[in-house]
Simulated scan of single mutants.
Amino acid sequence: MILTEQGELLYSATRDMAKRLAAATARIRDSEDAVFGELRVTTTTGFGTLWLAPRLTKLYDQFPNLKIDLMLDERIVDLPMREADVAVRMKEPSQADLIRRRLMDVRMRFFASKAYIDRHGMPETSDDLMRHRIVGYSPNANQVSAGQAWLRPFLSADTPSHLTMNNYYGVLQATLHGLGIGALPDYVAAEATELVNVVPSQASGVVPVYLAYPEELRHSKRVAAFRDFILEEIALYRRSLKDREET
């Protein structure tokens, strides 16, 4: 038993030493002027797959020697211990020694394909929604609490058929193909022009989106390149939403 505890302590110490060595190596690399090398970015599967990844072409066009390791996970990684370099999170980070910036606010809303509406009719009220098949995130999967609390009553309604899953890409595809009314983040549906926002008054609470990275990477050229890129893309995204609302 004593040997097991000693082994665990040795393993933990070795792992922490390896992380600190990686952090020191990264600091040396970050002192260079050029933007090159690996940048580990962590975010949720939904945001990374449906919003961030399609936009990365612009970043690579500007910095062709940059290598992005996009880590898609609902788990909150330890940035100070350098499990990742940069995080885009759906809540304000609570870890100390992080630089953070609020990027935008997201809400969950209901969307349906035009084909679904033609076949099943347009719901006008929340009570109408209760009589439709809802396609949404599984209540048992790790997700932001605002979306989970908002969707729960609709999934609990006395409707014989719903579809839930732990991936917003799947929810989007099922909704596009007319399987039901999808509960999706508005950043997803904003660019899916074939979807219609049904019962617009129905929306979740605000989900803030934050960019965060360790204080020690304040002067990192790789982090600065990614930060400036995502801030520019957020500005373009907001502008496109405003233009759409005005037309």
Rank of each mutant, 00 (worst) to 15 (best):
T49A: 12
A212C: 09
I230R: 02
D243P: 04
P123E: 04
L179M: 14
T42E: 06
H132E: 11
Q202F: 00
G121F: 01
A189G: 12
Q202D: 05
K221T: 10
I230S: 02
V106G: 00
Y213R: 06
D85Q: 13
Q62H: 10
L50D: 10
R89D: 07
S31E: 14
V209T: 08
S94P: 02
E83G: 00
L21Q: 04
W51D: 09
N166H: 08
D118L: 13
R75C: 08
R89H: 03
Y210V: 02
Y213F: 15
V106N: 07
E216N: 14
F47N: 02
G121I: 03
K91Y: 14
E38R: 13
S94A: 15
Y116V: 04
I134K: 01
M71Q: 15
K19N: 01
G136F: 03
S220L: 07
L211C: 01
N140E: 11
R89K: 04
D16L: 14
S161M: 11
A112M: 06
D69M: 07
M104V: 11
K67L: 13
L184R: 04
L56M: 12
N142F: 11
D73R: 15
E194T: 09
I68Q: 09
R152G: 04
G48A: 09
M104F: 12
R238G: 03
I99H: 10
N166P: 05
T43I: 06
R227N: 00
